[in-house]
Amino acid sequence: MKGMTVIVKKVTELMCGVIFLYGIYIIIHGHLTPGGGFAGGVIIAGSFILLILSFGSDFLALKKEETGSSLIESSAILTFLIIAVLGMIIGGTGVFFKNFLPGGTIGKLISAGVIPLYNIAIGMEVAAAILTIFLALLIYKDEVLK
């Protein structure tokens, strides 16, 4: 896939970092404000997709990128599962999904126990999964249709 004009490239260059940071903000404030892992993950994936669309995929080794993103996706789910199972071990009561960290003060960034950790894992998972789907479509277009 070819890139777009200089204007688009320059604007994307300026914007995508901000979009990425906004996605991270949404994820880590998931337990305080609207949004959370899923919404933030989609925004992060959006910043990557914007870059690929404006600069084109000719400079990318698509297969390698796809392997990387699917690896991140799997490890994010695994992290989620490990936190859930840790609740069974650390809580001492053998309860699945136990919130074993201290709750903290309501409204502070570091509060709500393990919920921010779940949000981060979900954010990674969603971002990587959407990017993987996008890359798979690109690979299909570039390689299979030719």
Binding site: L71, S74, S75, I77, L78, L81, A84, V85, M88, F96
Partner: peptide
Amino acid sequence: DLYIPLFVAVPLGGAFLSAI
């Protein structure tokens, strides 16, 4: 009760471990 979640957690863990 400890055994109940294993029926979901073990195959899910296995799925993503074998993916990685």
